[in-house]
């Protein structure tokens, strides 16, 4: 996983609430057995018409947002299906950070597993940043300091300490868990005594 430290970009603002993972990556792209190549399906129905032509008005098709690595969206981003194809598609498209007032739990969790930073900010601050994005002004995300620098304004954000550690260092958490092998084996021994039917 690519470590995440700082990121500077003109963000793209997507002013829609409850963007679900079906919108982020529709079903026809889920028949893959790979994690890569999903950028083609990102926001497919918003990006392409029924004939497969690009919709030039869609934010990620407009300059300078074709280069955005930060997405700003409405509340409850990533709700619905657990498909990790959603963060895979975002990542494949080049999005490394999302800013929204809230996320669904599963999507939020999936982001961290793929080196994407989902930042939660209050609605009013999200709107300030969206307006700034519309003005084509860049922002800088500083994960170690937990700050977003937007011109003269600096926003602080919260993040779970363990997740921050994994993101900054690009850690694979299966490896971390396997270091706790003794705890897992002990648990399993106890479980087979206490709940032999399981």
């Amino acid at each position: 996983m690519t470590p995440f430290k700082t990121l500077t970009s003109i963000p793209a603002a997507l002013r829609i609430m409850n963007i679900d993972t079906d919108m982020i990556i529709p079903k026809q792209f889920l028949r893959t057995i790979k994690r890569t190549g999903l950028a083609a399906g990102l926001f497919y129905e918003m990006r392409f018409d029924e004939q497969g032509n690009k919709k030039p008005d869609f934010i990620l098709h407009r300059e300078p947002y074709t280069q955005s690595t930060i997405l700003i969206a409405g509340e409850n981003f990533g709700c619905g299906s657990s498909r990790e194809h959603a963060p895979w598609a975002l990542l494949d498209f080049g999005i490394r950070c999302i800013i929204a007032p809230s996320y669904s739990d599963i999507f939020f969790n999936n982001c961290f597993k793929n080196g994407i930073l989902p930042i939660v900010l209050p609605q009013a601050q999200v709107e300030e940043l969206m307006n700034r994005a519309d003005d084509k002004q860049d922002i800088t995300i500083n994960l170690p300091d937990q700050k977003i620098v937007a011109g003269n304004t600096v926003y602080d954000f919260d993040i779970d300490a363990f997740r921050k550690h994994c993101l900054i260092n690009g850690l694979d958490d299966i490896g971390l868990t396997l270091e706790k092998e003794t705890f897992i084996s002990t648990y399993e021994e106890n479980r087979s005594k206490e709940r032999p039917w399981v």
Binding site: E84, N109, K113, N114, I174
Partner: peptide
């Protein structure tokens, strides 16, 4: 998600 599917399969 799938990363966690892998995590559960492995651990």
């Amino acid at each position: 998600g799938t990363s966690e599917v892998e995590h559960v399969l492995a651990t």
